[in-house]
């Protein structure tokens, strides 16, 4: 929501002009990618690292699996 408000303020109050016949399609698209990229790239990094952290915790705290030999020993007991 904060991101939305930030983006809204960054451009919403400048009303778009009328369309022109000669337009460079690249620059506006590049600038948009730069603007979104800072936010989306940051979120993506967080997502990747969060997934890594979660997987490390999963490995650390997972219940040890019983091997077949242990199971057999337990049965004997």
């Amino acid at each position: 929501m904060y991101l939305t408000v930030f983006l809204l303020f960054s451009f919403l109050f400048i009303l778009p002009d009328s369309t022109y016949a000669y337009l460079d399609p690249g620059t506006g698209s590049y600038i948009t990618q730069l603007m979104i990229g800072f936010i989306a790239g940051g979120l993506y990094l967080l997502k990747v690292y969060w997934q890594k952290i979660v997987s490390i915790f999963r490995i650390l705290f997972r219940k040890p699996r019983m091997t077949d030999e242990k199971k057999k020993t337990n049965k004997r007991n």
Partner: peptide, 27 residues
């Protein structure tokens, strides 16, 4: 406009198209 991805990929993108596409040499 209150949805960040739609705001970014459509509304902002459209705005930048008009604004910078018209006079790219200034950028």
């Amino acid at each position: 406009f209150l949805n960040f991805p739609i705001l970014a990929h459509i509304h902002l993108h459209s705005h930048n198209q008009t604004k910078y596409g018209r006079n790219p040499s200034q950028v």
